[in-house]
Design a binder for these strands. Structure first.
Lengths: 207, 207
DNA sequence: TAGATTGTTAATCGATTAACAATC
DNA sequence: TAGATTGTTAATCGATTAACAATC
């Protein structure tokens, strides 16, 4: 409890959070590790092991209170903490990410949108003006974003990420193929690599 | 060699493919497992183990020929095989996926775009008309897509995926939170769950 | 109390790393 | 040939599963 949490456990936490949210929405009050395991396609053992990395949230003979457990996991995931966030790159992908995601429910406050293309600057997306990347330094010094979402090509990502790290950005949601984590150890990164996912899909298809 | 490949190995294959592609683009001809391991942040042992799941692509005392190895991995990933693909859901996300992805280079031929919203039907994206989901059955019987990309909400995904599986779709690239794999064992699925990734990012941020 | 189900320890399984003989 | 580096076997490490005493 409280020690270093393995990547395997971290990967499963958001899924627990989602499943518990659904159960809560269905009006369910309690659930056993066995029933949850059947719904999620895991073993009951694994669920109990995972949860006990963080504390004893259950009760013998009863199981887990769904609302309490979901809320606990939400706190473990720090979804309640406000995280000032900027998004760089307002092409198709950046636009979709900006419009599509429910950032606020996870504590990510989207405070700035940026693009280097002058023709996009000034356009309004999600009630926010697209700003020029020329103003990035100034904006960051004033607003101290902690998180940056990179929807830019690999070549641009190298420079921008170095710049942002200097300006105090500590976490990246990275849609580019530039390997931030490799080049800047200590920074927190989650990658979304569409093409890797597509290739794995291709691999798994029948012969 | 040729046996069952573990998920851990499958996850790394696209990354090998990408790194080798870059080395090739740089004009490099050969590389040792040691040098590749340093560039990728892995151990040389792991690389050799991974590759030897599929065959002996290297040569003692020399290393690996970059072009040959990349091409071999491409074949292992079946990127050369044509895969007729449809995309369901042309909201912000579907649009971005349709415009942004370089499908063709991985063998995915995008042959149809669909949405249930009548106001979108007829619009042209990426040189293709958006079709009504009412015409899905007919279209699939005529064109036999093997892959479907789902950019629709959870509620819609349940029905659409069942429908598509009946129509012979064998693989899904799933952006929804509906758990296709769980409900339809035997079907091939790769999920992209943005919000799970965001939650993991949140978790990893400093306290 | 009896039944259920947790928290936790021990056993198993699989993946990663190390070592080294084979060989280019 | 000597040096380099693979392919592969053995050792280690970590994650998953099983088992069960604790306890609600």
């Amino acid at each position: 409890m409280g020690g270093i949490i393995s990547e395997s456990v971290i990967k499963r936490l958001p899924r627990y959070y989602r499943f518990l949210g659904e159960l809560k929405a269905q009006g369910r009050e309690r659930i056993s590790s066995r029933e949850l395991s059947e719904r999620m396609g895991l073993t009951a053992s694994q669920i109990r092991q995972d949860l006990n990395c963080f504390g004893g949230f259950g009760q013998q003979g009863y199981g887990y209170n769904i609302e309490v457990l979901q809320s606990e996991i939400g706190q473990i995931l720090k979804l309640d903490r406000p995280k000032n966030t900027i998004l760089i790159g307002m092409g198709n992908l950046g636009r979709a990410v900006a419009m599509h995601m429910n950032f606020e429910s996870k504590g990510f406050h989207l405070i700035g949108l940026f693009d280097s293309k002058e023709s996009l600057v000034g356009q309004v997306v999600r009630n926010q003006p697209i700003r020029s990347t020329d103003t990035l330094d100034e904006f960051c010094r004033e607003n101290l974003p902690q998180v940056a979402i990179l929807c830019i090509p690999k070549e641009a990502a190298e420079g921008i990420s170095a710049q942002l790290i200097k300006l105090g950005v500590k976490a990246f949601w990275n849609f580019s193929h530039y390997d931030i984590a490799m080049n800047h150890p200590g920074v927190v990164v989650q990658n979304i690599h569409f093409s890797d996912s597509l290739m794995r899909l291709s691999f798994k298809m029948d012969d």
